[in-house]
């Protein structure tokens, strides 16, 4: 169990986030408050700001205006046009990316223990023990000494999830983690995410897989044009959306799938 799972106080507060890439305004005043028990799935048209939202939340992008607090502490703000990020707060957030990001020169085990040893100063033996336990839990016990190029796409993404979990994150971000996978490998990755969900790990997920969204989300946010258009439980947003724009998007997505 991850602590504070039943706690209903705000885990993340995003206030008035603005982000432009040159003349393109990607986030145009985004306000989202996330509670500790929330598993948020963000859906919406491409270019609607979903991935940017995750990248901003991970502290990978500068913002033009707005602020984010995490667990009641200030995390990201803008001072004199410059983005200020608290790296200590950032360490309590983990992220898995769409493209494979295992470091190719390190074995699976070395990928897992790099950050705990270098960033947190954990002993190599202690970190290895935790890493092996985590790999075994994800059905990857036999792959500890393999190199990333010896793994399937699904295995790579499961290792990437394990690598992020090594740092005991209080929030996990998943940015289209199954989009680059062959269809038959999607399930094994989603299975691991569902397992984390069952343990009440707070997460924000960007996905195009509406079936998966319905299964894992406690809350669905429809993002378009850089703002939150609709925000509610999955039955509402995916089943009978209130807003016309959401309805149009959902109809189109489910239409393509049948």
């Amino acid at each position: 169990m991850f602590d504070g799972a039943k706690d209903q106080t705000a885990l993340v507060r995003m206030d008035g986030l603005h982000k432009s890439f040159g003349p393109v305004r990607v986030l145009q005043g985004l306000d989202i408050e996330m509670k500790r028990g929330d598993r948020v799935v963000v859906i919406g048209p491409s270019g609607g700001g979903k991935s940017t939202l995750l990248r901003v939340l991970m502290g990978l992008e500068n913002i033009n205006a707005g602020s984010i607090s995490f667990g009641g502490q200030p995390y990201i703000s803008v001072k004199d046009g410059k983005t200020v990020i608290d790296p200590k707060v950032r360490r309590s957030i983990g992220m898995v990316f769409q493209h494979y990001t295992l470091f190719p020169h390190l074995s699976v085990l070395q990928n897992l223990i790099l950050a705990p040893c270098k960033v947190n100063g954990e002993s190599a033996s202690g970190a290895k023990e935790r890493a092996r336990a985590l790999l075994t839990r994800f059905g990857l016990g036999a792959k500890a000494d393999a190199y990333p190029n010896q793994l399937s796409g699904g295995q790579k993404q499961r290792v990437a999830i394990a690598r992020a979990l090594m740092l005991d994150p209080k929030l996990m971000l998943f940015d289209e983690v199954t989009s680059a996978l062959d269809p038959e490998l999607v399930a094994e990755v989603e299975q691991v995410m569902l397992e984390l969900a069952a343990q009440d790990m707070p997460m924000v997920i960007v996905t195009h897989d509406m079936w998966f969204a319905r299964n894992i989300a406690s809350r669905v946010i429809f993002c378009a044009g850089g703002v939150v258009v609709e925000d509610g439980p999955p039955e509402q947003v995916l089943g009978s959306p209130i807003h016309e724009r959401t309805r149009e998007f959902i109809n189109r997505v489910f239409h393509i799938r049948t």
Binding site: R90, L114, A115, V119
Partner: peptide, 12 residues
């Protein structure tokens, strides 16, 4: 993406 992953893992 590898640089991003390094940042996400807290590496300086």
């Amino acid at each position: 993406e590898h640089r991003d992953a390094a940042v996400a893992l807290g590496l300086s």
